[in-house]
Design a protein around this nucleic acid. Structure first.
Lengths: 129, 129
DNA sequence: ATTTTATTGATAATAATTATCAATAAGGTG
DNA sequence: CACCTTATTGATAATTATTATCAATAAAAT
């Protein structure tokens, strides 16, 4: 049975308020501001639980794992500046994708487009972080 | 200028011979069998270089990073048994996906379907590793 | 053959993640 | 409300993963 602890609430609320896609370290630093003595282990444990419970989502990028409270979209990752942006796709497109994969019992489609963002376009040769 | 060292060759050849999707640790253990005194750091350095050079591919899964020499396909990850299987999709489907994303300068589409595989279907409640 | 210099292996250093466990507090029960 | 049970917490240690350092080695160019 899940307990709705202060820490759990704060982690959820903090992530919900984020429109960028924090790493676990960034999230920890954010939460520390309001909640001085929260333990590092609590963040790890809670985040992992929330992922399992499907409350939040992992965003798997070349520079590591980021987290997102919102689940109705996909992501773009810039190989030059590492910035992550939301990508909204029609359900129809995803249905098509699932259909042509011949898979069933899919719980989640992890989809990250990797490339060069507009503001990095034209800069010198890129380097994956 | 890249040097085609024995170590680099062996890492590429070993990964090329793998039809599962080893983690860096698994790959290291495999290579150790033939090449007793290869250093751990060499594996990390070389694998990271090969990813940057686009010779091999990272497969980002809930249980961590796996690697694949082959690049013409996508993946399915079983949330119960953690097995990774190849998923082949028509270019047309991916073109459609890219088109409807409105993105340009995409170098790579990282696509992992997560769900329950056929042989795990019917087992007790699943747990993400 | 000789020279140059990127790469290696060993090791240390650092960073990331998980395990341990007594103390705490959520949430049920009477 | 007070009490009880037990999941969760925070602190810390332990473990694991990754990167940095640097003298020795070996590609590959001359």
């Amino acid at each position: 049975m899940e307990r709705n602890t202060k820490q759990r609430q704060e982690i959820i609320e903090t992530l919900k308020a984020c429109y960028d896609h924090p790493t676990i370290k960034e999230l920890y630093d954010l939460i520390k501001k309001n909640h001085k003595n929260i333990g590092q282990a609590t963040i790890y444990r809670t985040i992992n639980n929330l992922v399992k419970e499907d409350v939040i989502r992992r965003v798997e990028c070349p520079d590591g794992i980021h987290y997102d409270y919102r689940k109705d979209h996909y992501h773009f990752y810039c190989l030059k500046c590492s910035k992550i942006t939301d990508v909204f796709l029609d359900n129809k497109i995803i249905d098509n994708l699932l259909l042509s994969s011949n898979l069933n019992n899919i719980k989640h489609v992890n989809l990250v487009f990797e490339g060069i963002c507009d503001s990095c376009k034209g800069k010198s040769s890129y380097e994956i972080k």
